[in-house]
Amino acid sequence: MSENIFSGLEDLGFDDIDEIDLYHTKKEEAKNEEILHLTDEEKQKNLLYNREVTCPVCGNEFKTKAVKTSAARILRKDSDSFIIFDVINPYFYDVWICNKCGYAAMKRDFNKIRNSEIELVKEKIKPKWHPKAYPDVYDVNVAIERFKLSLLNYYVIDAKASKKAMNCLKIAWMYRLLEDSGNETLFLKQALEGFNSAYFNEGFPLYNMDKFTSMYIIGELNRRLGNNDESLKWFSQIITAQGAPSKLKDRSRDQRDLIKEAEDLEKSADKLNNDETPVKEESKPKKGFFSKFFG
């Protein structure tokens, strides 16, 4: 039997199509083989492109690195919404910086700046700014620097608490990648303070988070910082709320159970320690030097 899937079309004039790779399998295999031999940096570079941006502060036109839409591959997601990616990390490219005036912001905020805020950047950021050439591929340390410059700009223009809080949360995530728990905790605290303020003083959504998602994030940040009682209050409100999505209720129950399990373990450990009583050693008479001869 012929393996030519187009056999029978010869009389119609198609007699030269007996070696067609219908799904381009061989081409894909060759491409994948080529990718295997690339370094990590080369792989990441292939997933980036230059995006043209105009600075709303000084009018400078520049190019910034951006990750191709199809490039981000999710490995897992932490309980506070931090996504761990494979090959390339889109968080590294989340901040846009104008190298002429020093204005920086997370990309969704970059063009959302008022005239009064522009004047503040010109007055307090631009005079001190030292232009910097960044590499073609960013790493976590570059990302931290760029996020901190963004946070400084948010502080200078007195941006909404939700913006500053999200910026701090993303810095905390970057330190998590470095396994730097001290700095992660520092910025988680800053993020929690900002989200708390935003929840009671801003309208929803808070940085693209609806009311219940905001409540969950506040509860989870409290849990991660050891504020268990406060965390349980937020999770309980979600669980009992009529309008909260079922998936968010399930996540809140999971985190509530984690807190209770940790507290039960702590109580058990305390009880075990209290039940243990020190055993006194029986005092024995000391033997003199000659006892080994006359004992």
Rank of each mutant, 00 (worst) to 15 (best):
Phe204Gly: 03
Tyr93Met: 09
Glu29Tyr: 00
Leu188Glu: 12
Gly219Glu: 08
Asn201Cys: 05
Phe294Glu: 02
Pro245Ala: 01
Ile218Ser: 06
Val87Ser: 10
Met166Val: 11
Lys65Thr: 00
Leu265Cys: 05
Phe187Ser: 00
Val53Gln: 10
Arg73Glu: 10
Asp180Val: 04
Glu179Gly: 00
Ser81His: 15
Val95Glu: 11
Asp250Ala: 12
Asn99Val: 06
Ser283Val: 15
Lys284Asn: 09
Gly288Tyr: 00
Ser2Asp: 12
Val137Pro: 10
Lys128Gln: 12
Ser291Arg: 04
Leu36Lys: 15
Asn46Arg: 13
Gln190Phe: 01
Ile84Asn: 12
Tyr23Cys: 06
Asn32Gly: 05
Ser231Met: 09
Leu75Ile: 15
Asp210Thr: 04
Lys63Tyr: 07
Tyr93Glu: 12
Glu19Ala: 13
Asp94Gln: 15
Glu261Val: 04
Asp40Tyr: 00
Glu230Cys: 05
Asp40Met: 08
Glu266Phe: 14
Trp129Gly: 00
Gly8Cys: 06
Asn111Pro: 03
Glu193Gly: 05
Phe147Ser: 08
Arg251Tyr: 15
Pro131Asp: 03
Gly219Arg: 04
Leu149Cys: 02
Ser236Trp: 03
Ile218Phe: 04
Ala244Ser: 07
Tyr138Trp: 04
Asn227Met: 13
Phe85His: 14
Thr54Cys: 12
Asp270Cys: 06
Leu186Tyr: 13
Arg108Tyr: 09
Ala172Val: 09
Ala262Pro: 03
Ile17Tyr: 15
Ser81Pro: 02
Cys58Val: 07
Pro127Asp: 07
Gly182Tyr: 01
Leu177Ser: 04
Leu232Gln: 08
Glu202Trp: 08
Thr240Val: 03
Asn201Arg: 13
Glu230Val: 08
Lys287Trp: 01
Arg146Asp: 01
Trp173Gly: 07
Tyr155Trp: 03
Tyr138Val: 01
Lys31Thr: 01
Lys189His: 14
Leu169Ser: 03
Glu3Ile: 11
Thr54Tyr: 00
Glu119Met: 08
Lys107Gly: 04
Ile171Arg: 05
Leu192Gln: 02
Asn274Arg: 14
Asp78Pro: 01
Asn153Leu: 03
Phe290Ser: 10
Ala143Val: 02
Gln237Ser: 14
Thr39Arg: 08
Ser268Asp: 14
Tyr138Glu: 04
Lys280Asn: 11
Ile238Glu: 02
Arg76Pro: 01
Ile97Gly: 08
Cys55Phe: 05
His24Met: 13
Ser268Pro: 06
Lys68Ala: 01
Lys26Trp: 03
Ala269Ser: 09
Phe92Gln: 00
Lys124Arg: 14
Lys68Asn: 06
Glu145Asp: 12
Lys160Asn: 09
Arg224Leu: 12
Leu75His: 15
Pro278Glu: 14
Asn50Arg: 11
Glu33Val: 02
Ser291Glu: 07
Thr54Gly: 07
Asp139Ala: 08
Lys68Tyr: 07
Asp210Glu: 10
Asp136Arg: 04
Tyr134Asn: 11
Leu186Arg: 09
